[in-house]
């Protein structure tokens, strides 16, 4: 054993190229951005003070958190409905539902935002249909506002909610609910008092995953918000490409990374990340 540990393990040579590439061209630049938050434009915590001094920055952070929370609740609720149906569906039906999930998962966020743009716009297909049916007399404002952004974000996030929920539900012994039924509980009682509490870890994991992923949304708010519903990511891009203020952007990036990694750590305690991501990759 001693000779083994002292000898160089050749498997390190396999890991080295990827690790060196990621360290030199990914981790280092990320750390560089984090450092900018305390060095640009001058050393100190000036950028962080902006959270309390600048209403723009405070509103931005609050708006981002609020929209992400609403998205999380909506996506997890809708995802729960789908997961529950998938759990009880015949295996052929379940496989068909799964393929729909995977296809939607892999259709680009750009194409999906574009689709909502065509549907929800002032002269969009939804307004057009409602007008010609005489249900409304004036186009509804479905886009270029928070409603449009929320619709786009929720639709995008539903598959992210379903995968951890389903993984959790499939781990529940079906005999538990049968036992509850045979002991005289109604189906509603069985669901609310037996099944729902058992899916709590899945609900928490799904909520964390959706919230974490929504924090960085860029494309959907930029396209469906029409510049009026700025979230942190879009604000960062304006800071970099238009006003060239790296300090504030780096500060927001640092906050975002810190929250994402902290929540990811919590998530890992409820459900192994390999289960969450493994389900995604499959």
């Amino acid at each position: 054993m001693a000779t083994r540990t002292s000898r160089f393990n050749p498997y390190w040579l396999l890991v080295a190229p990827a690790v060196l590439l990621v360290l030199a061209l990914y981790v280092a630049p990320i750390v560089n951005v984090l450092l900018l938050s305390v060095t640009d434009p001058k050393p100190g915590l000036g950028n962080y003070a902006k959270i309390f001094e600048s209403d723009t920055v405070a509103n931005l952070i609050w708006r981002t958190i609020r929209l992400c929370l609403i998205t999380t609740v909506a996506a997890v609720t809708l995802g729960y409905v789908v997961s529950y149906a998938m759990l009880h569906a015949l295996s052929g039906v379940r496989r068909r539902m799964m393929s729909i999930l995977l296809i939607s998962f892999w259709i680009s966020v750009l194409v999906r935002s574009f689709a909502w743009l065509m549907l929800l716009g002032h002269n969009g297909l939804v307004n057009g249909a409602l007008l010609s049916l005489g249900i409304i007399s004036e186009p509804l404002p479905l886009m270029r506002n928070e409603l449009g952004v929320l619709i786009g974000m929720t639709e995008y996030m539903i598959p992210y909610a379903i995968l951890p929920l389903l993984a959790n539900m499939q781990g529940i012994d079906p005999r538990v609910t049968s036992a509850s039924r045979s002991l005289g509980a109604s189906s509603a009682q069985t669901f609310f008092r037996v099944f729902l509490p058992l899916t709590k870890p899945g609900i928490i994991a799904a909520s964390l995953l959706v919230f974490i992923s929504s924090l960085g949304f860029y494309v959907t708010p930029a396209i469906l918000g029409g510049g009026k519903v700025q979230m942190i990511a879009e604000y960062i891009s304006v800071q970099l490409l238009v006003t060239v203020r790296w300090g504030v952007a780096a500060m927001l990036a640092t906050l975002m990374i810190a929250s994402v990694l902290a929540l990811m750590y919590v998530l890992n305690r409820f459900m192994k990340l390999s289960v969450v991501f493994g389900g995604v990759a499959r």
């Binding site: 990621v22 061209l25 990914y26 981790v27 951005v33 960085g216 860029y218 960062i236 970099l240 990340l273």
Partner: peptide, 24 residues
């Protein structure tokens, strides 16, 4: 730890990856 580093690009929001690459 090394595995976590290799998975980092998946966890970090794309906008932050974009900033980092741009600057570097």
């Amino acid at each position: 730890t090394i595995r976590a580093f290799l998975l980092l690009p998946l966890m970090v929001p794309p906008i932050i990856s974009a900033m980092a690459f741009y600057r570097w």
